[in-house]
């Protein structure tokens, strides 16, 4: 591992940190127009949607059904009112059994 590797690591650390830091410090204490604040409040839900789909369907390369089953089980447990841990562990459990038998 030469100097080039450490420079790359440093660069990666920098471009990872900067986009996270700038909005939190520069927007600090500023009053935003209500429409902008509204859009920013929407972002968590939109970003979760985009993070889940389509990635959840593609967790197993070439096996779409695996992801479909996983997503369906997770949604089902969550809809039935299961907590975060029961959603995660339940889904892993079902998929483990599923992949043992398929």
């Amino acid at each position: 591992m030469g100097a080039a590797y450490w420079w790359m690591l440093f660069g990666m650390a920098l471009v990872t940190y900067i986009p996270r830091m700038i909005p939190l410090t520069f927007l600090d204490g500023k009053e935003l127009p209500p429409i902008v604040a509204g859009v920013l409040r929407n972002i968590p839900y939109a970003v979760l949607g985009a993070l889940i789909f389509p990635a959840v369907l593609l967790v197993q390369e070439g096996n779409l059904l695996f992801g479909v089953v996983g997503a369906a089980v997770a949604f089902l447990i969550a809809l039935l009112g299961g907590g975060l841990m029961s959603v995660v562990l339940g889904t892993i459990g079902v998929l483990a059994i599923y992949s043992l038998f398929i």
Binding site: L51, A55, Q60, A78, G93, L95, S99
Partner: peptide, 19 residues
Amino acid sequence: FLQAAMSIALYAMFIGLLV
């Protein structure tokens, strides 16, 4: 089979947070 099943964990958590 456990490795495969664990790959769903992150997305299951996202779903658990969203629903």
